[in-house]
């Protein structure tokens, strides 16, 4: 039973892991990203649609590009347009929700989803993306903590003036981080439509993007923390599903809905118990960079 549980976590978690790890990059650079849901949707659709005409692995790359493209729009609105970053993120979500549906209609004339595609091959029983999701958080952790780029990323989200004073371009650094964040979200979306299922469903990713945001906050804006939180949430979800079939009696005591609400309630609890002013979100998060402000 434990093995089965683990196996289902390995299928369910990667999408949220990718998206949550990506979200940390954008936010560590100082740009709020509540548009993860929309970027994941772009990735899910892009990958499934592309996989109809090309090998599925290439389709996944298209999904990654789609997520990055949507993120570039977000970055442009926030960095060049100095829009409210939350407004822009929510706008992205709503646009992608409608646009995905529209494209389903326009391209496939079916409101429920795309036709089936060839799923990604399985490596050792799981999709390659599953194994990538185990490796990637460590790679990103390394990049954030051990490369010059990571140092600058951490600095620009805390005090962009300091980075600018040392001759580094703040806008370019932030733009790159947001686009990368979208690429990761796109990868997460692609995992849903090419590995978990074999097509794009009209409701994808049905809230997993917001779960990724929760995981990022829960993981205190660190790649490993976010990945760990995503795994934890996915484990809880897998446990819930497995309990539903194996021990329905238990769900009489602790209903499914309560278990479903748990990740979000826990995140909120952790946030509200934190000491006020304790180091949490990057200091310059959400603030457009103003070179004239010192």
């Amino acid at each position: 039973m434990l093995l089965a549980l683990l196996s289902s976590v390995l299928d369910a978690a990667p999408a949220v892991v990718f998206a949550a790890v990506g979200a940390t990059l954008s936010e560590r650079a100082g740009v709020v990203n509540v548009g993860v849901e929309g970027m994941m949707r772009a990735g899910a659709f892009g990958a499934a649609a592309a996989a109809l005409v090309m090998p599925t692995p290439l389709g996944v790359l298209v999904g990654v590009a789609a997520g990055a493209l949507v993120a570039a729009l977000h970055a442009w609105l926030c960095i060049q347009g100095r829009s409210d970053q939350v407004v822009s993120g929510m706008a992205i979500n709503l646009v992608m929700l409608a646009f995905g549906q529209f494209l389903l209609e326009a391209a496939f004339s079916s409101p429920a989803g795309t036709p089936a595609i060839t799923q990604l091959p399985k490596w050792f029983g799981h999709s390659p993306l599953t194994w990538l999701a185990i490796v990637l958080p460590f790679v990103v952790h390394l990049a954030v903590t051990r490369t010059p780029w990571g140092l600058r990323l951490r600095a620009v989200g805390e005090k962009p003036q300091a980075v600018a004073a040392m001759g580094v371009r703040v806008t370019r650094l932030r733009f790159g981080a947001v686009v990368l964040s979208g690429a990761f979200a796109g990868l997460g979306g692609a995992q849903l439509s090419t590995a978990v299922l074999d097509h794009f469903e009209s409701h994808m990713p049905s809230g997993l993007g917001f779960m990724a945001v929760a995981a990022m906050v829960f993981g205190r804006w660190t790649p490993l923390g976010a990945a760990g939180a995503a795994l934890f949430f996915a484990f809880g979800d897998a446990l819930r599903i497995s309990l539903a079939s194996s021990a329905p009696g238990l769900l009489e005591v602790v209903p499914q809905g309560v278990l479903l609400a748990l990740p979000y309630a826990l995140t909120l609890l952790v946030l509200s118990l934190q000491r006020r002013g304790a180091a949490r979100a990057p200091a310059a998060l959400g603030q457009p960079y103003d070179p004239e402000l010192r």
């Binding site: 805390e158 005090k159 300091a162 580094v168």
Partner: peptide, 13 residues
Amino acid sequence: VGPLTVAENVVLG
């Protein structure tokens, strides 16, 4: 940059 170390602040950029 407050959360960075002295060395990191100095070599930044």
